[in-house]
Nucleic acid binder design. Structure first.
Lengths: 339, 339
DNA sequence: TAGGGATACTAAAATGATTTAGCAATATTA
DNA sequence: TAATATTGCTAAATCATTTTAGTATCCCTA
């Protein structure tokens, strides 16, 4: 069974390629194709199982129906959860997803964007590392739909979906104060991406509002897992007064728990702990870990909504979405009643 | 700046489209293009930043340089780790990955395969749910490269990469006996996929070899998280003699830990625990959880190797790879010395 | 010096769709 | 009844590439 082309369908129906094409593209009415002929063509397509050749189609229309998902790390629970929902929803609407991880590496990301653009993807969902402003701007200039998430570039007029990092931090840190902890440290990355800065600012503001001194440990993204744990261990040894820690990412919270284990200290007696990004792990851990839950589902659906809307209309309105988070208080941030 | 085509390059070099195409496809020598002309063309391409149009190319060659990754669930730590490595390696070699999750749903998977085939992907890496034998066979018949992983169909002559589930189970269960536990239960899915059956068989064999009775709890994949936990709780209440549990998947181990927490029981005093699939979580948990580590990196690289080799050669040899696993003994499966 | 072979290149077909411009037949209006 | 509008359809250009089947030129040899 050789592959069927539109020509074969036309021949079987004693009509022209043009007419079949019109029917295929839902332009039968607009182009005044008679109902009988339309039905006949549709039936033939159904019977033969004919499928349009996507290359030929893409060649004319320049459309692929593929969205590029360029995220920091597909193996991170937060990003893979988002990827999962985006993928699912995109498929339902007839789009496919090509994905890749940036490792938050600027050069890698630039290359990936170039690679994807060569492939004529229809739209991009990106968690940009720093330094790719020009590439993003160039996409926008070329009228290629883009939406950023998790972070954005304040100087760039782009669509994005983020959470309210500043107030989330405030809420988390204030909760620790309210629970009776006094010397609250922040463990964060040394990244100067805006979401990280906002988490940092929220922390500092709350610390100062409570008349305390900020205590911050920054760990580079490139730091190896072992080294990260070591740094936290060292920091905690050298700052004995610290009685609570706010981790600005889920993976740093992991490292922190390892560090506390290594020190043979306990939560929340020695340290209270709050993490950014909730996940099953934190609920099951002993003690359960207080965390800030990002609205993964809302973020994902909003991303798809925006990108599809941009892909299917000429309108140039820019949508900036800031979602709020949910502090889930668990055992790790509440002082135990010593009986 | 309008988009450049091969025609523009040809004009700038005062040569033909054909010649440029030969140079582009590395056939310059074969087709006896003079070195000077070749250099000139290459330089022009470099200078102008010309890129081949992938549609037109795909239309002629039928090649997309895209591999379809069809896995059970991208948000599962094991699969996302594999996806991460595959993606990374594929990019390095000039291939892109389109992915999707099957949810282990037969109908969904069939649709996905159909969808991908319409897009003319060059190859497929699949964790098949049951019931898609015909679709896989049809890919093979059409000479489309496929490699399965995590599981396979014994009746089908396909390439695959799996771990030695039977002996892994044996090793895990025997370890529990060796550590002094006597009534070892298995918590597994009710799936009859071959990897699950082998894990089950390995368990039963070892139990019988040690002169004991198998105790098995099966939980359907479709069971909700809450319900799963409830089932385990009930089972443990009704089988008081059980002193150790082997979980056949990582997510079941999660449920099991939750169940044990709910029962306010402790590991390993009340139950020893061993899980299938290692992850950070198990190392950090209190107590740390003994787990069987699949060689994620080896699995991923082998998958890419096989699929690329099949994509780039006519040879029909079928590669069946069975990798061994690594039992990582941690606190959850070793009796404490009561001092 | 005719014929063969190597060298360096190219014209044109083919791939499978979309879309513009337009044609023929019929219906409607002035 | 002639002009115009509507209906229903199609020929052919176009998209950017690969690849087949050449051609023209030069060199060598018998």
């Amino acid at each position: 069974m050789a592959k069927l082309s539109i020509k074969d369908i036309a021949q079987r129906c004693n009509t022209s390629i043009t007419t079949v094409s019109f029917v295929l593209n839902g332009k039968a009415d607009e182009k005044r194709i008679s109902v009988e002929l339309k039905e006949k063509i549709l039936k033939t397509i159904e019977d033969t199982g004919y499928k349009q050749n996507q290359f030929a189609r893409g060649m004319r229309t320049g459309k692929t129906n593929i969205i590029g998902l360029i995220i920091e790390d597909i193996s991170n629970a937060f990003f893979s959860a988002v990827a999962r929902i985006i993928e699912e929803d995109a498929y339902k609407r007839g789009y496919k997803i090509i994905y890749c991880s940036t490792d938050d590496n600027t050069e890698k990301t630039k290359e990936l964007i170039k690679l994807f653009v060569e492939r004529n993807l229809d739209g991009y969902i990106i968690t940009p590392p720093k330094g790719v402003e020009d590439e993003i701007q160039s996409l926008i200039d070329r009228k290629i739909p883009v939406v950023l998430f998790d972070r954005y570039f304040p100087g760039l007029e782009t669509d994005y979906v983020v959470v309210d990092n500043f107030n989330t931090s405030k809420k988390a840190v204030q909760h620790l104060f309210d629970s009776g902890f006094e010397h609250i440290a922040l463990v964060t990355t040394s990244s100067d991406q805006n979401q990280m800065l906002e988490r940092l600012n929220g922390y500092e503001k709350t610390i100062l509002e409570n008349g305390k001194e900020p205590k911050i440990l920054k760990i580079p993204f490139t730091c190896s897992p072992e080294q990260s744990v070591k740094e936290i261990v060292t920091y905690l040894k050298e700052n004995k007064e610290v009685d609570a820690i706010f981790f600005s990412t889920n993976y740093l919270a992991f490292k922190g728990l390892e560090a506390i284990n290594q020190l043979k200290l306990t939560i929340p007696d020695d340290f209270a702990v709050v993490a950014f990004d909730d996940q099953d792990f934190f609920r099951i851990y002993n003690p359960s870990i207080t965390a800030v839950a990002q609205p993964v589902r809302d973020i994902s659906l909003k991303l798809i909504d925006i990108i599809l809307q941009k892909m299917n209309s000429e309108e140039k309105l820019v949508e900036k979405v800031v979602l709020s988070t949910n502090l889930i208080v668990r055992d790790s941030s509440v002082k135990r009643c010593i009986k």
